[in-house]
Nucleic acid binder design. Structure first.
Lengths: 130, 130, 130, 130
DNA sequence: GTGGTCTAGACCACG
DNA sequence: GTGGTCTAGACCACA
């Protein structure tokens, strides 16, 4: 059984952000579904060799996004997945602004538009499979 | 002649990053082509009311990405645009990893795959127009 | 006979607090009057699928507020309702401090004062009906 | 010149929450307006004799609410006040749910509905004055 | 100078 | 057992 959540301590992206990203990707890929439990903050921190506050911050980010629910007794639980319906109002707009910037970067670097759409498609299908 | 490069000093994204993003988007949109000069660091800093080192950092970022060439005599010059051919080796991989994470976020939040492809297309076409 | 007391186990507000809130609201709405018995701690805990100590804590909170009387033989009994006369000395002051903070939040966020009064009125009338 | 922001270390309400409440109340009362600077996290922490992380959390709460803006250079700045227009969508609903519970408590304790409306009015007018 | 991140360890609230 | 709060001190990123 592989460990889903791993982090790169030497990356320039904050550890708590990496953790949050891994959870988001796991939800998108169907590896985590609504209701699934996440490791407890302290247990995960011990596993990854990081401080429990760092895990805490990642989980809190996910809670703010509405993706996980933090409860006193059962710990962190996945709160939504791709089947949970449309996103919160306003999410799509903010997302598209970020997507625009990322796509512009690819175009500026010479990735052909057709290639770009293909790459998006493949990434989406990879996330969609389960 | 409209000012292409503007920044929001109160945004949560660093100013040097905003500057870099604006240049990338201008190149992707065809507003800047290979060989075009960029404003001098000091002039741009004065125009935007920001620190000269901040502009410097943005230009250096663009140089590291291979989008801008910095010379002592001609200042900063756009080094490549969408027509300059395929991207540097390794760029596509790194880019796709970031795209994967961004797309995963949209999927996890419940944006339908079809809607997602449509949003990518529209963003690409908007960036492509010139 | 409908169940008055229900709780959301996954909410961010503690279960014992939810329980206390439901009882307070039921008293305010006239669904519970002075002298009415409350379910026994063990029975209610079993009904709601929660720990018996949690119910105990909620009842104890209500006792401290003077809304409920706990006796060894008759269990928990509602001790007062809107018709029981003016509140205990000191209650009004503490309450108004909390109300002030809550109203301030609405004002700071831009809810118009007139709208605010209207919202208070409607909430009061809704609680008052019986 | 009086200190606006004070906290009670021995209260049962978290320090960061008290701080957040004081700022909200100051904005509602017109003591703080959009654009006004807040003390730096470390300076305020030193003044209050608390840890700078605690101040940080309070400021971050306010940022999430859209009431303050945190910038690298100018520190924390008030981002909106009662004149900044209507609240974010969804705010009013969540607020009214909390108000309902608070008002129910007052009714249950025997505060007369008329008195209740009067208290709300006076609190609102006190916040409104500037 | 500012805020942001990470670590470390303590104690409390909840169930 | 769980998460939440607070403290303390280090280092980094930004302007």
């Amino acid at each position: 059984m592989p460990m889903i959540l791993t982090v790169e301590p030497d990356s320039d992206v904050p550890i708590y952000q990496q953790l949050r990203d891994r959870v988001v990707e796991a939800i998108a890929a169907g590896q985590l579904a609504a209701g699934d439990p996440l490791p407890s903050t302290r247990a995960l921190a011990a596993d990854l060799g990081i401080n429990f506050h760092t895990v805490n911050k990642a989980y809190d980010l996910l809670r703010q996004e509405g993706l996980v629910r933090l409860t006193r007794k059962s710990g962190a639980v996945v709160a939504r997945d791709p089947r949970s319906g449309p996103p919160q109002p306003g999410f799509a707009d903010g997302w598209q602004a970020r997507a625009h910037s990322l796509l512009a970067e690819a175009i500026a670097h010479g990735i052909a538009p057709d290639d770009l759409v293909a790459r998006c498609r493949s990434a989406i299908e990879k996330g969609e499979q389960r």
